[in-house]
Design a binder for these strands. Structure first.
Lengths: 223, 223
DNA sequence: CGCCTATTTGAGCGTCGTCAATCCAGGTGG
DNA sequence: CCACCTGGATTGACGACGCTCAAATAGGCG
């Protein structure tokens, strides 16, 4: 199909498939499914049986754990190229987290069975998946470290420093309440922490836009 | 070698290798290294280059993240059969956590290169490793969930309920300060939380020994 | 038996969460 | 073009949970 041919062309751009031969890419394209999500649309929900592995093509979504009291803890923001749902290969598995689109998204889905076949057929694929999960796990460990040892202001400073920058300017890509949740803070606390950094002359905040005045002081604050 | 023959005999008991053929088991045994640790001995430390993957045979160790201020956050207790260090396959990788024996340990080590060979040679091994990491990751997610949504007493109750039980009796396998760290609490807070559960008539504590008087109330407290 | 460490207990404090009101921006419709 | 509306963000006041510091007690191991 035309769609598959076009898709096969875009697969090499995905880190997970980087360097694979065209035969394998074509086969992967043939068993993959495209998926689009509207803003706020839920891809899967905690408790549902896990059926597929996903790869982000465009857009952003959040992986979060809901609580009975309406709260949520955002575990991760997922960006283009990110792979998630590797645990689909565990037998009879149910999602621990919920995945919801933050903006319109396009992604690729591989169903359990097809993925199992792919892993059989393509040497090295399982290893790439393993790397992907390991890498993600390390991210989680770092988050745990921050949450355990750093104060609210320190975590906010750390987050600001991690954002991609143009000159000394950067921006918060997501809603502040979402970022707060990712950092394990209440929106109010996040707001106050930002304000603190402003008061100390380290940054300036204009809505989602942030000017960094003293990068080394920010780094010193975190460390 | 005799050691290898004996070792090959014990490998099937390890979940990771369950169901593999004897040829593969023999080969695995031949490339594995035994390792013993004395109590408190450090297996690897944060920041060191990762060289091996490990499998616990006997004993217990802790995986923890140290902080500059002498604190530590215990990420996990590892028990016989547990596999860790999968991220050794990431290129040029350094340990994020520190591994230290809580009691004398025996374990199996596979060096990076041998593990890479094994993954090539043994179909399905990469997948087993993937499952192992995925499974561990889920454990982390649950810990994050608890730390985010539950109070100190709730986390303690949850931990008590998870311990293996004989009748209505159970015991804390590790030092209380270690368990406290795993739960993201200070030792004092852990002690007071236990005391609270005692005061509420849910349990009795005698050193590391715990009697559970009202299991359903404990469960209700957690949920 | 004595030392050393783990644990417990107490007192006080600080950080962060909660609740409520206000402010602001973006989008919509008149 | 402007008024309105809605949801997010901010600010203030207050309280609580858990942390810190210090001392006392208990337990384990030589």
């Amino acid at each position: 199909m035309d769609a598959h041919i076009a898709l096969a062309g875009s697969l090499p751009a995905i880190g997970l498939f980087d360097g694979l031969g065209r035969t394998h890419l074509a086969w992967l394209a043939s068993v993959s499914q495209r998926r689009t999500l509207r803003r706020s649309e839920v891809l899967f929900e905690r408790g549902q049986p896990a059926e597929s592995l996903y790869i982000m093509l465009t857009g952003h979504l959040k992986l979060s754990i809901p609580s009975d009291s309406g709260q949520e803890k955002i575990l991760e923001f997922l960006d283009p190229g990110d792979v998630f749902g590797e645990c689909v290969l565990l037998p009879d598995h149910r999602w621990i987290a919920t995945a919801q689109a933050l903006v319109p998204c396009r992604l690729l889905a591989f169903e359990k069975q097809e993925l199992a076949d792919a892993v059989q057929k393509i040497p090295g694929l399982a290893l790439r998946l393993l790397s992907s999960v390991s890498y993600r796990m390390e991210g989680l460990l770092c988050d745990i470290e921050s949450a355990t040892f750093r104060s609210a202001a320190q975590r906010v400073a750390e987050y600001v420093l991690r954002q991609p920058r143009v000159g000394n300017q950067t921006r918060l890509q997501f809603h502040k309440r979402a970022i707060a949740s990712k950092l394990g803070l209440q929106p109010e606390t996040f707001s106050r922490s930002l304000k603190q950094l402003v008061a100390d002359g380290l940054i300036t905040v204009q809505g989602p836009r942030i000017l960094i005045h003293d990068e080394s002081a920010l780094q010193a604050l975190v460390a």
